[in-house]
Amino acid sequence: MPDRTDLLVVGAGPYAYSAAALARDNGIETRIVGLPMAFWRKNMPVEMFLRSGPDWHLDGKGEYTFEAFFEDRGLRPEDVDPIPISVFLDYTEWFRGRKRLDVDERLVTGLTKPNAGFVATMDDGTTITADKVLASPGIGYFLNLPEWYAEVPPARRSHTCELVSFDALAGARVVIIGGRQSAYEWAALLCDHDAAQVDVVHRHSTPTFAKVSWGFVDQYVDQTLAHRGWWRGLPVERQRAIAAEFWQVGRLTLEPWLVPRIPEAVVTSHPGCAVVATAISEHDVTLTLSDGTTLTADHVVFASGYRADLARVPYLGGVLDRVSITEGFPTLTEGLETSLAGLYLTGFAATRDFGPFYGFTKGCPSAAHIAITDMLG
Rank of each mutant, 00 (worst) to 15 (best):
G178K: 12
V174W: 06
A150M: 10
A155V: 11
V174P: 08
Q219A: 13
G250S: 11
R238A: 13
E162G: 12
W148Y: 14
Q223G: 09
I177T: 12
V152A: 04
G178F: 05
S158C: 06
A195M: 10
P153R: 03
F209E: 14
Q197G: 05
V174K: 04
W247E: 15
A244M: 14
S213P: 08
R157N: 09
V221C: 01
A196P: 05
T224L: 04
N144G: 07
L234W: 00
W247V: 00
H202N: 14
L189D: 09
S158Y: 02
G215N: 15
Q239K: 15
V217D: 04
L252R: 14
A150D: 13
L254K: 02
L234H: 03
D218G: 05
E237F: 00
S213M: 03
G171T: 05
V249F: 05
P256G: 04
L163I: 07
G178P: 06
Q181M: 12
R240C: 02
D222I: 01
G178E: 02
P235H: 04
L252V: 03
E151F: 02
E245N: 14
W148S: 11
A168P: 07
R157D: 09
S213G: 13
G178H: 08
A210E: 14
Y220I: 05
R228D: 08
A226G: 06
T160Q: 03
L163D: 00
Q197P: 02
C161S: 14
A195P: 04
P153G: 09
P207Y: 12
E237H: 01
G178S: 07
K211E: 10
Q223H: 09
P256C: 08
T253A: 08
